[in-house]
Structure formats: C-alpha cells, structure tokens
C-alpha cells in the first residue's frame, strides 16, 4: 500500500491534462449530436422496414377508408357541424398525417431497445460524448423521418383529391404539428423500451396503444357522429388534439369541438388549445423519459 500512496503523490505533481498527449475532449456538443444524427439516419436508410413500414399502414388506411367509407362518410360530414361541405379525403388526410407521426414515433423506443440488445447502448455510454447530445441526435433523426413521411402523405393525399386550404404555409404548419404530436409518443415508446428492455414488448405495446387511441379520437369521423362514451374518451385522448390542429390547418376552419375556445378567432381557436395540450404532454412524458434514461445510463447492467 505504501507504493500506492507514493504513486498518488506522483500523480498530483503532474501538470493538469498533460498526462495524455492527444486529448480528444475537443468534441463539441454539436459534433456529438451530429455523429449520432448521422448514425441513426444511416440505420433508418439501411432498414427499409423502418421507413416503409411506418408509411404502409397509414397509406393503406388512407386508400381503404376513402374508398370504402368515402360515400357514407362524406354525407355524415355534410350533416355534421364543424366540418361540413368537404370531401372525406380532405377530412381524413390530416388524421393520416398524424397516424404516420405516431407510427414513426413508435420506432424510437424500438431503436433504443435494439441498441440495448446489440450492446451499442452500453458502448456509447463508455464513449466520451455528451449523453444529451447522443439522445438528441437520435431523436432528431427520427423527427427528420417523420417530417419526410408526413410530406409524402400530404403529397399523396393531394394526388387523391385532398386540398390544403391554407396553402403551402398550412402544409408546413401540419409538419410542425406532426413534430409536436410525435414527441409525446416518442417519449412514451422510449419509456416502454427502458421499462421492458424487450423489443417485442415495445412493439406490441406501441401498437396496442396506437390503434384504439386512433379510433376513439376525431381521427376518422367527426366527434358528433360517434357514441357518447367515445366523445368523452376523445376529449381526453391526445390524438384528438393533434388531429384537430392538423385538420384546422387543412380546412382553414376552427374544427375543435372537444374544447370550446373562442378567444383567438378562426383556426387559432383550435391551434392554441391543441398546441398547449400537446406541449404539456410532451414536457411531462419527456421529463419521465429523461429521468428513466438517466437512471438506465448510470447503471447500465442492473
């Protein structure tokens, strides 16, 4: 032990940082972010299932729903309140855009679990990177994917006869709502990933949530065309807020009926409460996720 203490003295006398010649600590937060952003984008491109998979289902929904329910639904829209006088394609498209966002967001947790199973999660924890930059890089890659996919859906919908009443600016707005809307589900799917640490559970969990939630919201039919209990559930369903916000931009109308706001005028009566609800949800679930992620990072093997 005397040897060890003698050595400590030698260590103390070293000039700080002069111990190792090349210090790679020059890595900035942005470069850490960028490395991970690039890695996750590469992975997404390499894995066509990820990109196509989260697009196929919404596209099937878009085509089937408009073809099968088109006529009935359009007449239901005509008799209904807020969203009258439009085609079902136009009504449905913003909901499908949100569905894309949801499906892609579910992939976030799956990516995390996959990283844990491959050992990459631990490997990156031993690397001298900022952990927030690592996670932000991954999330940014997922958001980029969501934006591209929503853009594809909007273009496809336009081809099918839907019309964005607020123009290009409104379409960009829908992309923005898509991002805001994806964050709470990204957080949720990561929470499931950390808690279960199992790929299948995460996939099943995300799907189990995704579909019922979509149906008990204003996604596929206007609120007043549905039974009372669904109207109640829809009021507390986050999907309603994402869909209504996107739909308000699509139709250039105040379409929100679950919460009546009249203070802001026009589509802002929908957008302001919807964005407020989504932001609150993002912050709460995001907070839980960061807490769990921190815990998982500091004790990777437990």
């Amino acid at each position: 032990m005397s040897e060890a203490s003698g050595d400590k003295a030698a260590n103390e006398s070293r000039p700080d940082g002069g111990q190792v010649r090349t210090m790679p600590s020059s890595n900035s937060f942005f470069s850490d972010f960028w490395v991970n952003f690039v890695r996750w984008n590469l992975k997404a491109v390499r894995n066509p299932f990820v990109v196509v998979g989260s697009l196929v289902q919404p596209i099937i929904f878009l085509v089937l729903f408009t073809q099968v329910f088109g006529q009935i639904a359009t007449s239901a829209l005509g008799s209904g309140g807020g969203a009258g006088g439009i085609t079902y394609e136009t009504f449905l498209l913003p909901a499908i855009a949100m569905q894309v966002s949801l499906a892609a967001a579910a992939g976030s947790g799956i990516g995390l679990v996959n990283d844990m199973e491959e050992g990459m999660f631990e490997k990156t924890l031993v690397m001298p990177m900022s952990r927030s930059a690592m996670f932000l890089g991954k999330t940014a890659a997922e958001i980029l994917r969501i934006v591209v996919q929503i853009a594809i859906i909007l273009a496809l919908g336009t081809v099918l006869g839907a019309n964005v009443a607020t123009g290009v600016l409104g379409a960009v707005g829908i992309l923005g709502i898509g991002i805001l809307f994806s964050l709470w589900f990204i957080a949720l799917s990561n929470i499931m990933a950390i808690v279960t640490r199992d790929q299948e559970s995460t996939i099943i969990g995300a799907n189990l949530l995704q579909f019922p939630l979509l149906f008990v919201s204003t996604a596929f039919l206007p609120l007043d065309a549905m039974p009372d209990w669904i109207q109640v559930v829809a009021t507390y369903n986050p999907i309603t807020y994402g869909v209504d916000a996107a739909r308000a931009l699509m139709l250039d109308q105040d379409v929100m009926t679950v919460v009546e706001v009249t203070r802001f005028g026009g589509i802002w009566d929908t957008l302001v409460p919807a964005i407020a609800v989504l932001l609150a949800l993002d912050i709460v679930l995001g907070g839980v996720m960061i807490y769990l992620l921190n815990r998982a990072s500091s004790s990777a093997v437990q």
């Binding site: 790679p24 470069s31 490395v35 491959e118 001298p128």
Partner: peptide, 23 residues
C-alpha cells in the same frame, strides 16, 4: 457481449467510434 451496429458497415462502425472519440 459483442457490441457492433449490425446495420452499419465495418468501416462505418469504426468511423462512428472515431468521431465519437474525437479522432
């Protein structure tokens, strides 16, 4: 446990590490 990103090439795996370690 072997820890490599199976979706990346060998070169990309090493490049990722090189960037992460600030080479």
């Amino acid at each position: 446990e072997t820890s490599v990103d199976e979706e990346l090439t060998a070169r990309e795996n090493i490049r990722f590490a090189a960037q992460a370690y600030g080479v």
